[in-house]
């Protein structure tokens, strides 16, 4: 069964005709052209599809598209403001916090959300905040360091 929905993605209004079995992740990727969120597992185990839905950090693969009707969604494509990378993105680049990059969109979303609610997290707090995101390339060391660096950069500009 199909259903028409409207939602805002990265501040832009969108409309889509979605299958009621379709996930928000599928709609974002295949109906609305936002390929940034990735599907690594499809059941909420890996975090590669992490987006912000009405202010909450969620796995887009665990949300039906019809549940997101009327919602505000932020994906990794909406993190850089007018072509300027967010300090979290900048820190990931500078600290070598990505290799294959497939998990990176999810980590960027989780890390940005962490720093918004806790600007100066401890190392255990960082590790807890990203424990829903799997990375198989880096061993997490450089990701943790990048988030620490982004925290410092943000506190200097604040």
């Amino acid at each position: 069964m199909k259903q028409a929905i409207e939602l805002n993605v990265n501040g832009e209004p969108h409309a889509a005709l979605v299958d009621t079995r379709e996930t928000l992740l599928d709609t974002l990727r295949y109906k609305l052209g936002h390929m940034g969120p990735k599907e690594g597992c499809g059941n909420g185990n890996c975090g590669a599809c992490t987006v912000v839905l009405n202010g909450a950090v969620v796995n887009a693969c665990l949300v039906f598209a019809v549940e997101a009707a009327g919602a505000d969604v932020t994906t990794v494509e909406g993190v850089a403001a007018e072509g300027t990378l967010h300090p979290v993105q900048q820190a990931f680049i500078e600290h070598g916090a990505l290799q294959c990059g497939f998990c990176t969109p999810g980590f960027i979303m989780s890390a940005k959300a962490l720093l918004e609610r806790n600007p100066n997290p401890s190392e255990p707090e960082i590790r807890l905040a990203i424990s829903g995101n799997l990375c198989r390339c880096t061993g997490y060391d450089k990701i943790v360091r990048a988030i620490q660096a982004a925290s410092q950069a943000l506190s200097q500009t604040a």
Binding site: Y30, K38, V76, F92, I93, L98, P105, I108
Partner: peptide, 21 residues
């Protein structure tokens, strides 16, 4: 040197196999 292909990865623009449409 920072990864030369990092910017497209941190912004979700890198195109993987499943991203083909």
């Amino acid at each position: 040197l920072a990864k030369v292909d990092a910017p497209e990865r941190v912004t979700g623009k890198a195109t993987y196999g499943a991203d083909l449409d």
